[in-house]
């Protein structure tokens, strides 16, 4: 029986909700720091915005060419994966400040609202409408409401990927957040 105070019942500050408390996996390799490569990190930062633009393009182009919400979201997610592989969870935290469950929740809400809103105007649930807008410079713009569903899908997948990175990635790091040197030293002693 441990004598440490029961951490479960304390009020946990909001900023630390996602911080893993204990180690999640057994460790074979003792790796205290994230292996950083300057080249990879710089390239990742340069490429990052471009990849995001490609993902947005895929989102909008899905109606007429290959693409769509899924592909767009996955490409955006892979961009974040690249940043994470380059710099670890610190890098990831610098990229994303919003909590992933909020992103996931927003994406899902948008998708469900796309289904419900038509019912408010008397159409069957999940109907779609095609709007044609004429804009002064760009000309005629055809716009379908099921694009919102795609946007919801996009947001959700981005949120899912970042969530996985945060938990599966950061939670499996040794020397990452949530682990202190004392625990590491204790394990060193136990192993020898």
């Amino acid at each position: 029986m441990s004598t440490e105070p029961d951490r479960e019942l304390e009020r946990v500050p909001w900023a630390e909700w996602d911080r893993p408390r204990d180690r999640w996996l057994m460790a074979e390799h003792n790796c205290n720091t994230w292996p950083r490569s300057l080249l990879l990190e710089v390239c990742a930062r340069i490429v990052f915005p471009t990849v995001l633009m490609v993902s947005v393009y895929l989102l909008f182009a899905g109606h007429h060419d290959a693409g769509g919400g899924f592909s767009g979201g996955l490409v955006a997610g892979l961009a974040f994966v690249l940043r994470y592989v380059a710099g670890g969870s610190a890098e990831l935290a610098a990229t994303v400040r919003i909590r992933p469950p909020v992103v996931i929740g927003s994406g899902l809400s948008i998708a469900v609202l796309t289904a419900l809103v038509p019912a408010l105007v008397g159409q069957p649930v999940l109907s779609s409408a095609i709007w044609k807008l004429s804009l002064p410079v760009l000309g005629e713009l055809k716009f379908t409401t099921n694009l919102f569903l795609d946007i919801g899908v996009y947001l959700l997948i981005v949120g899912v990927v970042i969530d996985l990175l945060r938990t599966v990635g950061a939670g499996t790091e040794l020397g990452g957040p949530g682990l202190d040197d004392e625990t590491l030293e204790r394990e060193e002693v136990e192993r020898t």
Binding site: W17, R99, P101, V102, I104, G105, S106, G107, L108, S109, V112, L113, A115, L116, A119, P124, V125, L126
Partner: peptide, 22 residues
């Protein structure tokens, strides 16, 4: 007939909102 979809869409929306207000 929209009532038929509500038992599915309402909890889904509520789940999404629950994620947002975690």
């Amino acid at each position: 007939t929209v009532l038929v979809a509500l038992p599915v869409l309402l909890p889904l929306l509520a789940a999404a909102l629950s994620l947002i207000v975690m």
